[in-house]
Every structure is written in C-alpha cells, then in structure tokens.
Amino acid sequence: MMAPAERSPGGGPGDARPSIWDLVIVGGGAAGLACAIYAGRARLDTLLLEKMLPGGQIVLSDIIENYPGFPDGVSGMELAQRMHEQVGRFGARVETATVAGIEVSERPFQVRLEGKGPEDAPRARSVLIATGCSPRKLGVPGEREFFGRGVSYCATCDGPLFSGKRLLVVGGGNTAIDEALFLAKIASKVTVVHRRDELRADRILQERAFADPKVEFLWSHVPSEIVGDDAVRAMRAKHVVSGEETEVEVAGVFIAVGEVPQTGFVPEAVARDAGGYLVTDGDFQASVPGVYVAGDVRSGAYRQIAVAAGEGVLAYRSIRQYLEER
C-alpha cells in the first residue's frame, strides 16, 4: 500500500504523480509542514496544498521569540522558509492551490481544487486538515468599507505605508501587542484599544509596550465605528461600562482581536465544536475515519507554533498507523 509504482521522491515539477496519494495535507502552516517532513521521511506519497505561501500565519509575524532553537528570535518569513525547505528535502510535494471541498463519502477521498474540474481532484487515502485560522473581524460599521484604505489585519504588510502617522491597534493579546510594538517603530503614535483593563499578552511583551513612549492605551473600550471619507480618519469606541463614546483620530486601524478557524471547505460530516473548530479524538482523527486535524484549526488546540508543529507530528503517527491497518 505504501509503495506504489509511481513515486515523487524529489517533489519537484515534472515528477510522476501517483494516481492515489497516501496523504494529502491541506494547509502549509507549522502543523502541515511538520507532518509533511515526517511523512516524506517515511516515504509516504504526500501532497501538501497551500493557498498562498508556506508558513501560514507564521509569516505574518515580524519576529518570533518563543520557538525553541532561536535564542535571538527569528522572523516569521525565515522560519517559514526553513520549514518549507526542510519539507522539500524529504520528498513531500508542495503545491499552490486552494481546496474547494473534500469528498468523504467515497474512498479514496477526492480533494476538489478551486478553478479545477473533478478530473484534476487529487485522490487520497488519508487527509490532514491543517488550515489554521484567519483574523477575526470586529463587525463594526466602516470595517469592510475601509479595508485596504486604513483598515488592516497585517501590520507587517501595511504598517510601512503609514510612516509618521497616528495608528491604532485593537486587541490585547500577543498578536495585538506584537503589532503595536512593530508599528511604534514606524508611526508617530500607536493607541491600543482593549476591551479589558489589562492585557492578555505575555508579560515580556506587556513590559515592552508599557516602556515604549509611542504606545498608549485606551482601556475598557470596544470599537463602535470606523469613520472617514476616502480613507480612515478616526475610530469611535465605547466604554464597556458607561457606554460613553470616544473618538480617536487615526490614519490606520490594525485589528488583532483573535481568530476564526478556516473550515469553509470542510464537509458537513466532519464534526465541529460550538466555535466552529474541528473536533478530533486523542489520535487527532476527525469524526470521519481517515480525516485528521492538527494545529490551530483543531478544537482545544493551544495556538502556538511549537504546539502546531508537535500536533502535525502526532497526527502523522496516527495517519501512518491508519494507512498500515488498511
């Protein structure tokens, strides 16, 4: 079963594609890449599909300081590139494609791709869903209207376009404070708007933010509206107790209020929890046998890069066992 005649040892273009893959991994973040490294070394015919850039949410981080092995920190881009290179070394194939759906009512599974017909759908004995999360929207008026015109979900991308401007970050977790510290290097001033009166971010990040003269805080406020004309001019926020509204004049609003799982393509048969995250058993198997889940998209996951990588490896162990038993 694990040694079909056609194999793609180099993973490079032009290599023969197996008619049925042992494993198709959906999502090229830390979980998917770690699983692909192990699957490649085990010589499973493995295809990893990533819609944008291998690394997933990792690449959005200016600097990562809590991933073991990098005492001076590492940029998200570099860590992602290294993981991607490591996958390439062991033979799993990485392709750019957006998965539109997975047909789980038949075996092998069919992985349907956006913009491609059923004849181009890879067939797979097992599937790992490792699609992670995307930024949660605030859901206030003006957010959608001004997206790309002052409203952003990626400080490392759009921050440099706001040199010398006044900016605002919404949120109080690690991502929000990371972004505030990054933007403070570019902007004239950064206001962090948070719904609580304390931060959830790691203490080391809090200490840096409190010590940064360009970072100020608007505590216990929730955004109510983003306003402007051609571009963002200000954000209005309400006090969580008094309801009193404040307007902060800013050129850019960077939103970091948590994440939502990316499961739009996942069939109904795969069980979710109340938050939409995919439920697994202790072996990382979803409610459909042969479908596995690892990383941020999994119900109960501690959403950290090191954990996602570990979950990818544990899922690999279960997948290998599943393939051997069939």
Binding site: L60, D62, C157
Partner: peptide, 10 residues
C-alpha cells in the same frame, strides 16, 4: 508591494 509583506512575496 512593500518589503516584509508576506502576501507580496507569495
């Protein structure tokens, strides 16, 4: 585009 912008790199 801008430097250090991951979607730009992609």
């Amino acid at each position: 585009w801008a430097p250090a912008c991951p979607p730009c790199v992609a």
